Simulated assay, not measured.
Amino acid sequence: MTISIGDRIPEATLKTRLEDGPANITTDEIFAGRKVVLFGVPGAFTPTCSMNHLPGYLEHGDAIRAKGVNTIAVVAANDVHVMNAWRKSVEAGDRILFLADGNADFIRALGLDMDMSAAGMGTRSKRFSMIVENGVVKAVNVEDSPGKAETSGAAALLEQL
């Protein structure tokens, strides 16, 4: 079942990169008492993710935060090292929290997983965006195709804030 408006974010432990190396981060640490924009991508460094989806959140990040958002985060079924390399390659700094869900456990719990085995990519995330307040989903946008970043893009999400 796909997560919907009014649902709580499932408990999960993800990975992120801190200055001293990889670290676990729980969904409670990310979402409790905070307003968070979370977007999911099929994979770091993939064309639509790198050229269309992520850049919009970097471009509109200040406007999104000006609407009371504490954190903008991206999640993908990649390992923490790949996510950190992607963060560095786009010079995101700390403007976006990069979350690694290497086994896609969190993505599956959201009901937003898809099988991309035919493309040699295994289980990946559908392309999505959501607004979460104190762990409760207030808006969720899922693309019909992994090659599109329109309804889940930053400009569309900004209109929902």
Rank of each mutant, 00 (worst) to 15 (best):
S4G: 01
G6R: 03
D7Q: 01
E11S: 14
A12T: 07
T16S: 08
R17I: 07
L18T: 13
P22L: 00
T26S: 15
T26C: 03
D28M: 04
D28C: 06
A32N: 14
R34L: 03
V36I: 03
L38A: 11
F39G: 09
V41S: 15
P42Y: 10
T46C: 09
S50H: 13
S50D: 14
M51I: 13
L54A: 07
Y57R: 02
E59K: 12
H60N: 09
H60E: 14
A63G: 04
I64E: 01
A66F: 06
K67H: 10
I72M: 10
I72E: 14
V74P: 12
V75T: 08
V75S: 07
A76P: 14
A76F: 14
D79R: 03
D79W: 04
A85Q: 12
K88L: 13
A92H: 09
R95Y: 02
L99H: 09
L99W: 13
A100T: 01
A100G: 00
D101Q: 11
G102H: 12
A104M: 08
D105E: 06
I107F: 10
A109K: 05
A109V: 00
L110K: 12
D113G: 01
M114T: 11
M116T: 05
M116E: 15
S117N: 08
G122P: 14
T123I: 15
T123L: 14
R124S: 06
S125F: 13
S129Q: 02
M130L: 12
E133K: 05
N134F: 07
G135F: 09
G135H: 07
G135A: 08
V136T: 13
K138T: 13
A139Q: 11
V140G: 02
V140D: 05
N141Q: 11
V142M: 06
E143S: 03
E143H: 07
D144S: 15
S145L: 02
A149F: 08
A149P: 06
E150M: 10
S152D: 03
S152Q: 08
G153H: 06
A155Q: 08
A155I: 02
A155K: 14
A156E: 15
L158H: 07
L158T: 03
